[in-house]
Computed example of a mutant assay.
Amino acid sequence: MIQVQIDEAEAKELYLQKLNERMKELEAETAYWDAKELKRQTCMSWNTIQDQFFYHPNFPKYKVGQKWYFPAKETKEFLLWWIRGKG
């Protein structure tokens, strides 16, 4: 008979490590966000976004047709800079 023992703490740590690696890969794949994704990422309504930082001259945004797009990496950097200034 074969008996297998698993260290649950080690298995959980390995699982979380692999999950974190995959999340970073997925983030790297996203080149830009649309307004819906910006709202999701910031947990803010569109009105709040417009009131708080949308019109800031350093906020990266591009309008293509009728839709706004935001470069993911630059937008994240701006949002971190912006929120640090609010503290």
Rank of each mutant, 00 (worst) to 15 (best):
R40N: 10
K86S: 02
E37P: 03
V64W: 03
R40P: 00
P60I: 00
Q50V: 11
R84W: 06
K18N: 08
E8A: 12
T42R: 02
L16N: 15
K39N: 12
S45A: 14
K73G: 01
S45D: 05
T48A: 12
C43W: 08
H56E: 04
I49P: 06
G85P: 09
R40S: 13
W68P: 00
L19S: 08
E27N: 15
I49T: 06
I6N: 02
K24D: 09
Y69W: 04
A72N: 04
Q3K: 10
R84V: 02
F78K: 01
W82F: 15
Y15I: 01
R40V: 11
Q17R: 14
N20Q: 15
A31W: 05
V4F: 06
A31S: 04
D7M: 03
K63F: 03
A31Y: 03
Y55T: 07
P57R: 02
Q3F: 03
Y62E: 07
K18T: 07
V4K: 09
V4A: 04
Y15R: 12
L38T: 01
D34G: 10
N58C: 04
A28D: 14
E10P: 01
D7E: 11
K86L: 10
K67E: 05
Q5P: 00
L19Y: 06
K24N: 13
F59D: 07
G87S: 11
E13N: 10
E21Y: 08
M23C: 14
Q52P: 00
W68S: 02
R22G: 07
F54D: 04
I83G: 01
K63N: 04
N47M: 09
A11W: 05
V4E: 06
E25Q: 14
L16F: 11
E27Q: 14
F54V: 02
D51Q: 13
I6M: 10
Y15E: 10
K73Q: 06
Q3L: 07
L26K: 12
I83C: 02
K67I: 09
Q3H: 09
W46Y: 14
R40G: 12
E8N: 09
L14N: 08
H56G: 00
D7W: 04
N20S: 14
E74H: 09
R40F: 05
E74L: 12
